[in-house]
Design a protein around this nucleic acid. Sequence first.
RNA 1: GGCCCCAUCGUCUAGUGGUUUAGGACACCGCCCUUUCACGGCGGCGACCCGGGUUCGAAUCCCGGUGGGGUCACCA
Length: 566
Amino acid sequence: MSDTYSQPTPAEHTITRFAPSPTGHLHVGGARTALFCWAFARGHEGTFLLRVEDTDQKRSSEAAVAGILEDLKWLGVEWQEGPAYEGLGGDPRGVGPFFQAERVDIYNAALAELLESGRAYPAFETAEELDAKRKAATDANQTYRYDRAALEIPEAERISRMMAGEPHVVRFKAPDHDVVVADSVLGEVRFAAGELDDFVIRKADGFPTYHFAVVVDDEAMGVSHILRGQEHLQNTPRHVALQQALGYRTPVYAHLPLIFNPDNSKMSKRDKDKAVRAYCKEQKVDAAPEGTLDDAGFKAWMEDKRAQLPTDDLMRLATAIGFAPPEIDVEDFRRSGYLPHVLCNYLALLGWNPGEKNEDGTDVEHFSMGYLVEKFGLDRIGKSASKFDREKLMAFNANEIQNRMSDERFADAWRTWLERYDRATLEALGDKLPMAAAAARQRTRVMREAAGVVAFALRDDFGYDDKAVQKVLLKNDGEGLAVLRELGPVLEGVEPFEADAIEAAIKNWCEAKGLGMGKAAQPLRVAMTGGTVSPGLGQTLELIGKQASLDRVGRCLSQFAGVGGG
RNA sequence: GGCCCCAUCGUCUAGUGGUUUAGGACACCGCCCUUUCACGGCGGCGACCCGGGUUCGAAUCCCGGUGGGGUCACCA
């Protein structure tokens, strides 16, 4: 065996890896896999490494790599080994590089062994020829397996044609015995001999296929535990067969249950395009709004049910038409204003459960990253797929913001979020941000809702809600307006103009008049915001400011005086 | 269709043969708190896919059925 990929690490050391292919942002399913790999390694004082599977030249992009690294870092899923990124990554054991496209020599060395031992062989069919064979088999209602036609060619000729540079792939000769996959979640899964066909391990372009690269790399990098989605289960016998042929050890496998949409469809990036497209149809949007797409592009996208827009274009379009597509990628949840450790918390519960109770008998459901690291284990991973429930995630996030965060911590988190996603509001708020945060916190479930809660403070030129005006100001001969008239001077006398003092002053006035607080609060709300809903009265007025509050009372009075009496 | 996986309230799940009138969370519905909204408190609704075994006893073990899902590329 060549030293190139000999085992550099003692087998007892726990090493997990996350190996995304850089074809887009990190998907929540991938995020959960990464999270589990990370937690498992951490909990076993092991190493979590990141490897980029970019052997598909056509679909990989550097932007996608950067996006995935950023998403992981934001989540708090930190890799000790792998691509360097803001202090993460590195290669202390010298097992890199961590981009498969840079490891072709390593794969070829392993491949040479298989070729030599006769476990792999070149095949010369074109993709078109294979498609035709496949189609013929399907049409005849039969399962297609590669027919080993290339093995009909005498070996010497095969080799010489390969050496002469004739286009070819290399196939692995599948074993003639059953392959058993020992999975720590599912148990032993047996695949009968003959189920595997001679799959391709090196493509015509010289790059290894996924199956081959994964097996070689996991061995070379000393990966001890492979946690991945259950959609990979049928790949595993191929990998095990390859390991056996190469004399590698087989790592521990744990196949994670799948995550679905509430309607049982697979969660996919396409869902976003689908939702936006449906909204466009529903709202009869027949041309792309200014500054989003050109007409031809928009039309083509609308007509092709499976078309996907680049993320940025899609989001710009969605924003322009006032629609929020469902969150699918980690970046989507970040943009909506979920907290990273809450997302991790929720994700961890999809397919895993600590199985512990709180003292009051409820299940332990809200936990920190540290708790996850401490408790996570393969033995409590579930077997059945789960549906992604945004309502519950939202409730988790709301719980964190409303019941666990302080006003100060929320203000910090909000500021960070605004810096990235809503600079206009950040600037409009200015140094009132902490006050606004305090007012908005208990009414905010995800960060993007917060600005709406305090929107009244940002603009003076709001309109009044008719129903509110009728009910609160004009009813009973302008009772509400009369209250407002008297409240003006009361507010004027409040100094300093702070929430508690404001509330106290209004309360005093009510008591003196023998009125319930509601009789004063609601007219003031309408005057301050145009409607009947706002944060606490004191907070609302303080946020608006003394002069502006008085102005709003005046404006309201002059607008409705004489409309309905009073 | 072949192969493979799975199956507890609408959803996420606890439950590993008796401690279970199956526990919790989200959602939903009431009531309470209350200056609106929200928060919070209390209560309610609501599940072991079906059929056979095994056993004194089965949500838990076995078999079959049904249902759901995954996968069948020179993508990963």
